[in-house]
């Protein structure tokens, strides 16, 4: 068998990963612009609405790029993604609601924000991904 450089599978995966990275970067930057732009860079509500719409568009693009990225992976990689996403979703629902209960019942003087849940989901996803990859290597 002749030694090969990058296979079609690898090339597709790399291309889709790059696309996902670029769209995610655009989404994050537009999110930062929409958060800090009003007041700092402009005062017009029209511009704010436009930037928020742009951010939502990049968000949809990011979801589509992520779906494409996962479809291009092989069956083990997809299984690992499924595990990581399943755990992340579970943690988001269970602990998100727990935190909400702590806040609404005034058990602790905390103020739960969506950003906290997003952070929790992100960290859970990364840790689970690393653990699952190690389990199958």
């Amino acid at each position: 068998m002749e030694p090969k450089s990058k296979t079609t599978f690898e090339r597709t995966l790399i291309r889709n990963t790059k696309i996902l990275g670029l769209v995610t970067l655009a989404w994050v930057l537009s999110m930062a612009l929409a958060s800090f732009g009003p007041g700092l860079l402009w005062d017009a509500k029209g511009i704010t609405a436009l930037v928020i719409a742009l951010n939502a568009m990049f968000g949809v693009g990011m979801m589509l790029a992520n779906m494409r990225h996962i479809r291009a992976q092989d069956e083990l990689q997809q299984k690992i993604q499924l595990i990581a996403m399943g755990v992340s979703l579970g943690v988001a629902v269970v602990f998100g609601l727990s935190l909400s209960l702590v806040e609404t019942t005034h058990l602790l003087p905390i103020e739960v924000e969506v950003a906290h849940v997003v952070l929790l989901v992100g960290l859970t996803y990364m840790v689970t991904l690393i653990v699952a990859i190690r389990r199958y290597s």
Partner: peptide, 11 residues
């Protein structure tokens, strides 16, 4: 083998 089967080496 991974290249022939269109999967990753890790798989």
């Amino acid at each position: 083998l991974a290249a022939e089967l269109d999967v990753s080496r890790q798989t």
